[in-house]
Design a protein around this nucleic acid. Structure first.
Lengths: 166, 166
DNA sequence: TTGCATTTGTTTAGGCTTCAAGCAATTGGC
DNA sequence: GCCAATTGCTTGAAGCCTAAACAAATGCAA
């Protein structure tokens, strides 16, 4: 920031290169790890990452969730969830029924077999993840958590701003 | 770490929960930002993120790249690039020709119009990104860069390890 | 109660993405 | 020179994903 002759704040043309580089590095990290996890899931369990993620959401709740809930939590579109659930019901991992109190609502939950299968996968998945992050010290992890939380907040704010003016 | 009666190192069952939470937060951040950027690219320029990314790779080099180069840099499959390039050639953004020295190789580059269009998009894109990261101080940015570099290295090492034993 | 906005989920069209298999051109070893 | 392995790219099948349009159910307000 610079003050001109009349002591008024003047913006210099800013350099946004750092943020771009940060974004690209963030994306690279995620892509790299995601690819690794996807590959291992396929190799070991012949399952896709989206299916694993969906099952992970459902494993956290005993009584199931609605499709909308899943859609929000996974940050994917409604139509996407519809298809994903379809295939998981087909394969016997999920159970689906219409809500008693609201006939628009579909409640899905893991079947017994689905839950067992997920737990099996999750146990290994956890080892992969800690292997992938194994070069980071506990302090690094804490610091990354903190900075990513801040990033998330910042991104949400920017998204909110756009959503309002649209 | 614990030392047993014979003074030999013994591992306790470790808690991998921190790494999982870190991974989920990393993924959330990326998904959030990616969605935001995709939305804006569509709104403002009616272009998809993969096309923008591909053009960004090509903008960096004056003489074009081969499909394999693009595939490696974007960390996506070969077949993916084939289709992406097809559509961008179709729309007049890209120019494609077979290499003189190796007839397997396809060299692609931005057309004049394609480059102009990309520069127009990139200018705004940069502003979006710095808006999205605007809550982070320069120090935060530096620290994130450092930790993500470390993460990238760690992930690559883990991926390497798996690739070797396969 | 009727009417209207909202919410929930499905469908459709188009595009992205991977993996696996395959073809063609090149390279390297003999 | 010949053949095997490698490299570069394409194709096909399956699945993932979005945006937009839609139908059904709900809820609220006049």
């Amino acid at each position: 920031m610079i003050l001109d002759s009349e002591t008024k704040a003047v913006e210099l043309p800013e350099d946004h290169g750092d943020e771009i580089r940060l974004w690209l590095r963030l994306l690279t990290c995620t892509t790299l790890i995601e690819g690794e996890v996807r590959g291992r899931l396929r190799e070991r369990f012949d399952v896709t990452l989206p299916r694993f993620d969906l099952m992970a959401q459902l494993d956290k709740v005993p009584d199931g969730m609605t499709l909308s809930d899943v859609s929000k939590r996974m940050m994917v579109s409604n139509g996407n969830v519809t298809g994903l659930v379809e295939r998981l019901v087909e394969s016997g991992h999920l159970d689906r029924r219409t809500s008693d109190t609201d006939r628009r609502v579909q409640v899905i939950r893991l079947t017994k077999a689905g839950r067992a299968e997920f737990r099996r996968m999750a146990a290994e998945h956890q080892l992969w993840i800690s292997d992938i992050f194994s070069d980071l010290s506990p302090k690094d992890v804490r610091e990354l958590m903190r900075l990513l939380a801040k990033t998330k907040g910042s991104a949400r704010k920017a998204a909110q701003k756009r959503a309002l003016q649209a």
